[in-house]
Amino acid sequence: MLSPTMVVLALVVFYPLVAAMRESFYESGQRLDADGFVVEGEWFAGLANYAGVVEQRFLNAALNTTLFTVVTVALEVVLGMAMALVMRRAFRGRAVLRASILIPWAVPTAVAGLMWKWIFQADGVANTLLGTDILWTADGPWAKLAVIVADTWKTAPFVGLLVLAGLQIIPSSVYEAAKVDGSTPWQTFWRITLPLVKPALLVAVLFRLMDALRIFDLPYVLVGPRKQSVETLSGLIWDEATRVHYGPASAYGTALFCYIAMITFVFVKLLGADLLSDVRSRGKEARDVA
């Protein structure tokens, strides 16, 4: 049963991964012959493509990526949690509320990016409401804030949805018992809701972390490519690849991969002791049956 799965995985996952890593050590398409034609073929470049990793542009992109990830994921967890708590309660119009909270998540990111671009443009809604004339979409610190706002709006519902699923499997008897014992709402939240919803919350945060570290489309559409203040690692890789610098693009891609792998590993190690225990025990059962 395992081998067809492995073949598919090898084709769609390992091959591109290994090919990208290989590409990161080669140079191609950069030399011209005497007649002005590009010399075909490729040359081993050693670590030359990785030289950019210590340069200002890459470090700036890495810093932006990290900043966006930390800030947006933190905001999204708080907002998502609040949304989930509201969505869980039974009241008239709950279905409508649930649906409307999920709308941002259903909107394609590129469309959301365009929408926020209109909101943030010089004579847009944001400036009118705030009574300011900030150039949100020009390169600068405001652009960072614009991206954070738009990304939080877009993905907080995702966290909300996953947390809601986690909340719904908490048996109501636990809450009834707490009520009988005279627990305050605050105590109930910290002592019952939060610990019991933790596995679902951690999965949501893990997904969001990995997603946020790859963020590309929102800064691209909202502010534009090659704007220093919002250029992320994915944006940098895209820019190199479109300028047919496949070597450096692959090198940066490999670096980004290592960065995401490292963060995920640390996250799973520190917080996720029970995150995958369920999967593991199920895997063990399957093996035992086999």
Partner: peptide, 15 residues
Amino acid sequence: AALVLGAGLAGCGST
């Protein structure tokens, strides 16, 4: 973890 990451990366590098 590696599988999830790999799937994400496949879109980045050109190969």
